[in-house]
Write a protein that binds this DNA or RNA. Structure first.
Lengths: 137, 137
DNA sequence: CCATTAGTATACCATTTAAGTCTACTTTAT
DNA sequence: ATAAAGTAGACTTAAATGGTATACTAATGG
C-alpha cells in the first residue's frame, strides 16, 4: 500500500518543472541536483514521463526537459500512472483469473476494493501541479 | 500501491467468520479449504488478526477461531492495519529523516500525499464486515 | 565536420519484500 | 495418553525495488 520511491521522485521532478517559467527547458542534471535524485535513476523516470506525454525531451547541446502541457493540466494521477501503471490496489483486480470463480462470484470483498480503488484514483486526480506549485511558494 | 495477498486472504477469512452464527468457533483448516487459502499461510494471518484483537483463538481439540467482536464493529481498515501496519502511502511519511529538511519544508508533495493517505484510510474505515457479509448473501 | 553535450536503450546488480513452507512445540478435550 | 488444534520462528524461493554501467544516438556550434 505504498508508492514507489520512483513515483515520489517523479512528483518532485514534475513539480520542479511546474514552478519554472512556462516553456523553459532544463537538463536532467539540474533537476537531479536540485531535487537530490540520483541522476541515472532520474533519467529513467524522465523517460517514463516523456512516454506518458507529461514532459517533452530535447537531445543534444542545450537539450533537456519541458512540461508538455500547463501544470494545471497535470494531475498527480497522471504522474502515478506514468510511473507505476494504472492504480490497482488488489491482485485479483489485475488478474481476475487468479481468483477462483467461486471467490469472484461470492466474495463482495473485490467489489468493495474496486470502489475504494476508484476513490483513491479520484484523490490523486483532484490534485494538479499548478496548485502544488503555488503551495510551494 | 497494492495490498498484500495476505491482506486479501485476511479479508476473506474475516468475512468467512462474519457470516457464521455469532460465537461459532471454526478451525483454520475449514477456513483454508473454504476460502482456498494455503493452510500454513492462513495460520500466520490468523495469528496477526488475533494479536490485533480482531479474532480470538482457542487451542487444542475443538479449538479454532471466532470473531472477537460483532462484524459491524470490524472495519476493513482494522484488517488492513492488522496485516500491514498503519497505512503509509509514502516513504517519507514513514521515515521523515529520509527526506532532507529542505524537501520537508519546501515540498508540498508530502503534505498532499498525507491528505490522500487520510482519505484512503477513511475509505477503508467506512466499510465494515456486517455490510460485506450482507452483500455476500 | 567533429567534439561536446545531453538524452536513449539495455543490461546488470544488490537488497529487500512477498508469499509460502517446514519443523518443532504447547495446549486442551476426551 | 493421544490426537487435534493453535503457536513460534527459521527457512526458502521468486519477484520487485532502487540504483548503476555501458554503449549508443541526436543536436549544436565552432
Amino acid at each position: 500500500m505504498k508508492l514507489n520511491q520512483a513515483t515520489d521522485y517523479a512528483f518532485r521532478a514534475v513539480l520542479h518543472l511546474s514552478c519554472l517559467p512556462r516553456g523553459r527547458v532544463v537538463e536532467a542534471r539540474l533537476i537531479a541536483e536540485e531535487q537530490k535524485i540520483p541522476m541515472r535513476f532520474l533519467l529513467k523516470i524522465l523517460r517514463l514521463l516523456t512516454l506518458a506525454g507529461i514532459v517533452e525531451s530535447y537531445r543534444g547541446v542545450n537539450g533537456g526537459y519541458v512540461l508538455a502541457r500547463a501544470p494545471a493540466e497535470i494531475t498527480m494521477l497522471d504522474v502515478v500512472e506514468a510511473i507505476e501503471g494504472p492504480i490497482k490496489i488488489n491482485r485479483c483486480l489485475i488478474a481476475p483469473e487468479e481468483c477462483s470463480r467461486r471467490a469472484v462470484k461470492h466474495c463482495p470483498v473485490h467489489k468493495t476494493l474496486f470502489s475504494i480503488q476508484q476513490a483513491l484514483a479520484g484523490e490523486f486526480k483532484k490534485r494538479n501541479f499548478q496548485e502544488l506549485c503555488e503551495s510551494a511558494k
